[in-house]
Design a protein around this nucleic acid. Sequence first.
DNA 1: GCAAACATACGAATGATTTCGTAAAACAAA
DNA 2: TTTGTTTTACGAAATCATTCGTATGTTTGC
Lengths: 127, 127
Amino acid sequence: MELKPTDSELEILNILWEKGPSTVRDVHEVLERSKEAGYTTTLKLMQIMHDKKLLIRDETSRSHIYTANISQQKTQGQLVKKFIDNVFNGSASQLVLQALGNHKTNRQELDEIKQLLAEMEKKMKHR
Amino acid sequence: MELKPTDSELEILNILWEKGPSTVRDVHEVLERSKEAGYTTTLKLMQIMHDKKLLIRDETSRSHIYTANISQQKTQGQLVKKFIDNVFNGSASQLVLQALGNHKTNRQELDEIKQLLAEMEKKMKHR
DNA sequence: GCAAACATACGAATGATTTCGTAAAACAAA
DNA sequence: TTTGTTTTACGAAATCATTCGTATGTTTGC
């Protein structure tokens, strides 16, 4: 699968991942909070995403119900990979340094990262 | 400065950051290795970037010499911030988990990250 | 039933990025 | 000088994403 959602599409995907199956109106109402947008604009975008198979929809009732057709995990993974290639010439750790360096990270997040690092350490020793 | 280079522009910036001041032909030759592109296309892009002040150029000799006018550090920082907002709803650690989880990271990179984490730990205790 | 509200579909305008053809100027070699 | 090569400049086409107006059909409430 060769997928690259645009920025607008990603906004919609984020909403659907968070809220689960939703109508255009549902999505539009969330979208409206953070940006100016007409209803038909949101509709059109979701129709295009449906054409591209980014979304599937249930047309049983008049208000179609849309669902994301690609997983959040996988999509984020692809986007991160592409981003690392584009911006950091393929060096994941460079990205990590940037991300940690410039952002405030709280105790819990830090612990999660430390834990992951510990696991990676372990795996490295086993080689 | 509110700058957001496009993907094509970023490719060119990467080359200039790596190679330093270069002519259009220099850049184009590097670009050609990884993608199909006409010379005038590269030229036009660099001219546009010059208009946008992303590049500066020395017009002394016939072949103008272009130099990146924004720092790699700063640009990467801005791009990372935007990326984290778009894709991970602002959570830097989520990005880090993705990046570390899906990519092979070597010992040295891992050590750098550990070191940075240790410093962050320290700072947190001092609050 | 009828009007108002709501939904989809469609086409087209807008805007931004990318691509490239062509012309003119500078230079190089014969 | 003349011819061929290299460069810049310019304009416009092609592409893609985004936005929205309008038509049409469905449902709801009176």
